[in-house]
Amino acid sequence: MPRVSQAHLDARRQQIVDAARARFASHGFAHTSMADIIAESGLSNGAIYRYFTSKEQIVIAVCEQGTEALPKALTPEAVAGFLEYVRARARENRHAQLVAQIYAEAAVSPPLAAVVQRQLAAMRAAVAELVPESRRADAAAIAEAFVALCASYSQQLAIRGDLDPAPFTAALMAIIRE
């Protein structure tokens, strides 16, 4: 029996994660079964279970790939660009709905909560590094507020639909400048 390459194995695993992401975004975690993920992926039961033994493992894999691209600077243009990126992902693939579901599921799943907590900590650390020198003493608090407001923007997109990021950009810039 020929061995398959690691690239092939990685592609199949990604196919499963992509199928699950699409199904979770459109139907939610509670209304998605392993059978739904199998159907969405086009793979067999055996193929799915080779990579994941439970839906929770798939949810965690989806979450682990969900890190947002943060702004490269805390300027109005960079922050607006970042929020527009979040907005575009919400429109294109219902990413905001998926994030809302991940947060809700993390509230009752310690393994998923650990992944989300690591991601949020990494985001806060990255933002803190971008805080202007004149505000360095407040970098941790600024990063905490920045990440919280960005998460709120995503949640608002999930619930209210397409929203102009301008008021959120203005609020984030006010936090940074104070």
Score class of each variant (00 low, 15 high):
11 A>R: 12
108 V>L: 11
34 M>W: 06
102 I>C: 05
134 S>G: 12
157 L>F: 10
47 A>K: 09
123 M>P: 01
38 I>P: 02
22 A>M: 09
15 Q>S: 10
51 Y>I: 02
41 S>M: 05
148 A>I: 00
6 Q>I: 01
90 A>N: 03
110 P>N: 13
70 L>K: 02
70 L>Y: 08
151 A>I: 00
126 A>E: 13
135 R>C: 05
72 K>P: 06
79 V>K: 01
115 V>G: 10
36 D>R: 03
85 Y>V: 00
122 A>Y: 03
165 P>H: 12
120 L>T: 04
18 D>G: 11
67 T>H: 06
94 R>A: 15
19 A>D: 11
64 E>I: 01
163 L>D: 10
144 E>V: 00
47 A>S: 15
23 R>P: 02
145 A>Y: 00
13 R>F: 04
140 A>L: 08
17 V>I: 15
64 E>L: 02
64 E>D: 14
14 Q>P: 01
156 Q>P: 01
49 Y>E: 13
21 R>F: 02
11 A>E: 14
38 I>D: 05
166 A>C: 05
72 K>C: 13
97 Q>C: 12
96 A>W: 04
43 L>R: 03
155 Q>T: 12
135 R>E: 14
70 L>V: 04
14 Q>A: 13
130 L>P: 11
99 V>I: 15
113 A>N: 11
121 A>H: 10
98 L>H: 06
2 P>C: 05
134 S>F: 10
172 L>I: 04
152 S>V: 00
43 L>N: 10
67 T>V: 02
160 R>E: 13
104 A>K: 12
47 A>I: 11
19 A>V: 08
11 A>Y: 06
131 V>L: 07
1 M>C: 12
94 R>Q: 15
83 L>W: 07
163 L>G: 01
173 M>T: 06
23 R>M: 13
33 S>K: 04
46 G>T: 10
119 Q>E: 12
77 E>W: 00
140 A>D: 14
138 D>V: 00
101 Q>Y: 00
123 M>S: 12
79 V>C: 02
23 R>G: 05
